[in-house]
């Protein structure tokens, strides 16, 4: 058994080394395929992260009447907390609102800034949620509270159309992205199968000879299947290294904002951070997929000859 395994590995090595160009082409195709799929997946993921950033930045602001009792204001906060859907509730007092207002107006219109009275500005809650649907739910509750109030709530600021647009964008981009990834994957796997089939085709005479001198199917197919798996491993490995280098360049230049002016537009949005462990996990999964796809492609291609 060990002897057989050792020989199958030896034949695999000979196939790969003595077919230099074909091996190179197969590895190149594998690398390219995994690279394109990975780039696409990361892009879709990053767009989602960016959209979620905007999603999390969306807020509802409830303005209270400047004379509203603090107990009422706190009861509204409790109503919001009870929904369990708010991720952050920030109270902006009259004093804080005035300071913020003054800061903005002093540079733009100092005269107006002096004219505004502290008591004219309303206290408010700035409410954030983790998802847009939660934001909508809270907005609906607040509208109800406002309807029941006796003038304690002045206004509710909630940009429904912007929120709805974002919500739609997230769902469209996610479904188009997943659809495209599936489509790309299918096309790529077909390309991989064809490439490996071409490699095996170049060995068709060898396969016939091996069978004529008494090789079993395992002896004939083993090296080809391992060869396919090997191309998968190397392809994933190389594409992962290239991707990681690209990620490093983009993430450092993004922070410094020197690479592309367009990146500065996104300043403030946290770009997805990947820990080494997560990256290794992703590479591990990709290598597993590479092995399976390479081996299956070889198996499909070689079975044609084994049936003869």
């Amino acid at each position: 058994m060990m002897l057989k395994a050792e020989r199958i590995l030896k034949y695999t090595y000979q196939h790969i080394v003595r077919n230099g160009w074909l091996s190179f082409a197969s590895i190149a195709i594998m690398t390219l395929t995994f690279f394109v799929i990975s780039i696409f997946s990361f892009t879709v993921y990053s767009v989602n992260v960016i959209l979620h950033y905007y999603e999390s930045k969306s807020q509802i602001i409830v303005f209270f009447n400047p004379n509203a009792p603090i107990s009422y204001i706190q009861s509204v906060k409790k109503d919001i907390i009870d929904t369990g859907k708010a991720s952050n509730i920030k109270y902006v007092s009259k004093q804080q609102a005035f300071t913020n207002f003054e800061k903005v107006l002093k540079t733009q219109n100092p005269q107006l800034a002096n004219a505004v009275d502290l008591n004219a500005l309303p206290p408010s809650y700035e409410i954030s949620t983790t998802s847009l649907s939660n934001l909508e739910d809270i907005a609906n509750i607040l509208y109800k509270v406002k309807a029941q109030s006796k003038g304690e709530i002045n206004n509710i600021l909630y940009f429904k159309s912007v929120v709805q647009f974002l919500k739609k964008a997230v769902s469209i981009i996610t479904s188009i992205g997943i659809g495209l990834i599936i489509f790309l994957s299918i096309i790529s796997f077909v390309i991989i199968i064809i490439t490996i089939a071409i490699t095996i085709n170049s060995h068709s005479e060898d396969i016939e000879i091996m069978k004529l001198v008494g090789a079993t199917d395992t002896y004939v197919s083993g090296p080809f299947i391992i060869e396919g798996a090997f191309y998968g491993i190397i392809g994933v490995f190389i594409s992962s290294i290239i991707l990681y280098l690209i990620y490093l360049v983009i993430s450092t230049s993004y922070r410094k904002s020197v690479l592309l002016p367009i990146l500065s537009f996104f300043q403030g949005i946290p770009i997805p951070q990947y820990s080494i462990l997560l990256l290794l996990e992703i590479i591990g999964i990709e290598i597993f997929i590479g092995i399976v796809i390479g081996a299956i492609s070889s198996f499909i291609a070689i079975s044609r000859y084994l049936k003869k």
Binding site: D206, I209, V213, G214, A215
Partner: peptide
């Protein structure tokens, strides 16, 4: 002849023996 082009003369002959699990 039906020799394996990617194997040397030695390997071509050895292949037949390898199939029958010789050391």
């Amino acid at each position: 002849f039906k020799l394996l082009d990617r194997k040397t003369a030695f390997e071509n002959v050895a292949f037949a023996l390898e199939l029958s699990d010789h050391t």
